[in-house]
Amino acid sequence: MALRLPRIGTSQIVALVLILAANWLVSPQFFDIRLQDGRLFGSLIDVLNRGAPVALLSLGMVLVIAMRGIDLSVGAIMAICGAIAASLADSHSLPVVLGAALAAGLACGLWNGFLVAVLGIQPIVATLILMVAGRGIAQLITEGRIVTFNSPELAFLGGGSVLGLPTPVVLALSMLALTLIIVRGTALGLMIEATGGNPRASALAGIGTRLITVAVYMWSGLCAALAGIVAAADILGADANNAGLWLELDAILAVVIGGTSLFGGRFSIILAVVGALIIQAMNTGILLSGLPPETNLVVKAVVVLAVLLAQSPKLGGHAAGLGVLFSRKKA
């Protein structure tokens, strides 16, 4: 896993460094970090903190995509699980709240996995069902309102800090470590790559492709549930209409920026998270820049295009792509 990082991760790391450098140019205090009430405080911390939900989603999404699948429902699962957590927060203890929300995420993943692996529905269609219906379910839970809560324990998961780091960052890092251990510490990673690369050959080699498919969608559901809890804890309330809205697309983009092909096969968990950070670094940079909001999407599109072009083998790969792009602009 980590061994591959230097070889294929160069373009992503270069892209992240370039974007951070650009942020520093538009906002000279970008790298300033101070301690505020025992919590690290600064734009760089914001990138990590705000990037945590998409990073969490990308941990599940990267595995799903490696299996030649896609999970469009993660944003809706965030909304469902955030709604459950917020609804229960003031009347139940934290373990119950978390247990219920995470179980709901797993159940959503099981549903997706069932549709894909057992009924053989194409992943994009199968998960579209929950993407559309899920937000409705979340709205049913919140009765269309923003359900607020006061539970300090749950609020801690969004706004608290551990050893100075915001809790969402710590949660995302823990989940990253857990995913790495489960996937790369066992033979699951190999099996996922094999199944994504050639499902028929893998089944004939004795890999339980169906079971792994279901497991991978469940993991994606679990990651989405955690992201939903973090999002709800962050604003001290569940906003069923907006929580996780369109974040599935950011998660897919993070995975793609991380170099995992939408056609399945080889994947990198760490680079998917780097992809999520690239997206958030860009978002934060745009907010700091003071550019008019009408330009947000244009700037985003241009940066994403540049990052993806830099990875294109036809442009010489790696940073060369970015270099080419910039030098042509000047010329």
Partner: peptide
């Protein structure tokens, strides 16, 4: 139905044993 083209020779060889 046989090879997983993107994976290495090593990974292809150990695949069934690992499964």
């Amino acid at each position: 139905e046989g090879i997983v083209a993107d994976l290495s020779v090593r990974e292809n060889i150990v695949l069934a044993l690992q499964a």
